Simulated scan of single mutants.
Amino acid sequence: MNNIILDPYQQKGLQLKNHLVMAPMTRSRAIGNIPNNLMAQYYGQRTGAGLIVTEGTSPSPNGLGYARIPGIFNAEQVEGWKKITTAVHAGNSKIFVQLMHTGRIAHQANLPQGAQVVGVSTMKAAGQMHTDSMGMQDYPTPVALSTEAVKTTIAEYVQAAKNAVAAGFNGVEIHGANGYLVEQFLNPHINNRTDQYGSDYKARASFALEVAQQIADAIGKDKVGIRFSPFSTLGDLQEYDAKEVHNTYVYLAQELNKIGITYIHIGFSPKIPQQTFDAIRQAFTETIILCNGNTAENAADTLAKGFADVLAFGRPFLANPDFDIRISQNAPLNEVDFKTLYTPDAHGYTDYPALAVAV
């Protein structure tokens, strides 16, 4: 098997020890929304990846939509993250924190005192989410962000990015997918705003671009990435005109290229037409990371297609702390225990066996 994904990646602004990225995966172990020693052990076990992108981490108390997800907006959280970045750097890997504001995909029971569920509009999402205190609950009606509150939210992203640098991160990834706040701005069925952040696709993209630009100004463009998943309907997003979707993401790629951020991270979907992949690749000259559906077996062929520069893997890293070694030895992989994805303790988190002790 061609193990090109184990070769160093030093072709553009992002230099990594290999072509392996550990994808961001919510694991819900941050008790009190504070990164802890258990999380440091988890990330420290997985430094076979050239780049680790953390689980979604809120830049604001309002963005902590799920139970036990971490934040990076106060001093205690920064101190907690320092343990994790130290562990990852000890393994000669780089680590970006994924800044994830959940917006309307939230419940008040998961938020700290004084925080509120906010959104681009007052449109509530269909469905329910888990809360530790009340079990499954319907999504509530969010408070629509005023124009001033949007500016405040952008400032929270910027401060979170500064906090990330203070915590030892190599950079930040803005979460612009999965139906969370950035993507809520992009979707015309959710974004019915009449201010500068609404109307046509360029205006709807302005929130993402302002966040990226201001973070780049604050910490350096080489420390900024962003994740998108064109044509996704996660988070109760409704489909909209395919041409407009295409235009939205090509425009974002063009503008982000002008800003000079270090990477765009694309979540693959079979709904994405090849012309959209091609147009994004033509528009963006820095690193593109491709996630979803990657395997060690198809990695060389995927990279040879020319769209992606490096590949992100989720479940293989979740269940195999030594995923890189298993690739090099063509060894079998542990299966994911789906029952323990979001439980609060070490089981199904740090106790997956490494190859040396696997039965």
Score class of each variant (00 low, 15 high):
276 T>V: 11
313 F>C: 05
271 K>S: 10
296 A>C: 11
293 G>Q: 07
307 F>Y: 15
294 N>P: 02
297 E>I: 12
268 F>W: 10
306 G>D: 12
330 N>F: 12
326 R>I: 10
308 A>R: 00
301 D>V: 14
274 Q>D: 13
279 A>T: 06
299 A>Q: 14
287 T>N: 02
282 Q>M: 07
323 F>N: 10
307 F>D: 07
294 N>L: 04
312 A>W: 12
283 A>C: 04
286 E>Q: 08
272 I>S: 07
306 G>F: 09
287 T>E: 00
295 T>L: 07
293 G>V: 08
266 I>S: 02
278 D>N: 13
315 R>C: 00
308 A>M: 04
317 F>G: 09
275 Q>G: 00
286 E>L: 03
270 P>V: 06
330 N>Q: 15
325 I>T: 15
278 D>H: 08
304 A>N: 15
266 I>Y: 00
297 E>K: 15
292 N>D: 05
282 Q>P: 03
305 K>P: 11
295 T>I: 09
319 A>E: 03
273 P>S: 06
325 I>A: 14
290 L>N: 02
282 Q>S: 09
312 A>N: 13
280 I>S: 03
272 I>K: 07
285 T>C: 02
297 E>L: 12
306 G>T: 11
312 A>Y: 11
292 N>V: 05
282 Q>V: 06
277 F>I: 08
311 L>Y: 05
296 A>R: 15
296 A>W: 10
282 Q>C: 02
309 D>P: 04
284 F>V: 02
308 A>G: 03
268 F>C: 08
275 Q>A: 01
329 Q>Y: 11
296 A>L: 12
291 C>F: 05
325 I>R: 13
285 T>F: 01
310 V>P: 06
286 E>I: 00
282 Q>E: 09
301 D>Y: 12
277 F>V: 05
287 T>K: 02
313 F>W: 06
288 I>T: 01
314 G>C: 09
288 I>G: 00
265 H>Q: 03
287 T>G: 00
297 E>W: 08
327 I>H: 12
284 F>K: 01
298 N>H: 06
288 I>S: 00
270 P>Y: 07
324 D>Q: 15
282 Q>D: 07
277 F>D: 02
267 G>A: 04
287 T>S: 03
266 I>E: 00
313 F>I: 08
314 G>A: 13
330 N>A: 14
305 K>V: 13
325 I>E: 15
292 N>A: 05
298 N>L: 07
285 T>A: 09
269 S>V: 04
288 I>W: 04
291 C>G: 06
302 T>M: 13
285 T>R: 06
324 D>G: 14
274 Q>T: 13
320 N>I: 14
272 I>D: 07
288 I>K: 02
287 T>M: 01
322 D>C: 15
295 T>W: 08
292 N>L: 01
322 D>Y: 14
318 L>F: 09
278 D>Y: 06
278 D>V: 06
300 A>V: 11
303 L>Q: 10
299 A>H: 14
318 L>G: 01
330 N>C: 13
307 F>W: 10
326 R>D: 13
328 S>G: 11
288 I>E: 01
284 F>N: 03
316 P>V: 09
275 Q>V: 02
311 L>F: 08
270 P>C: 07
268 F>K: 10
303 L>G: 10
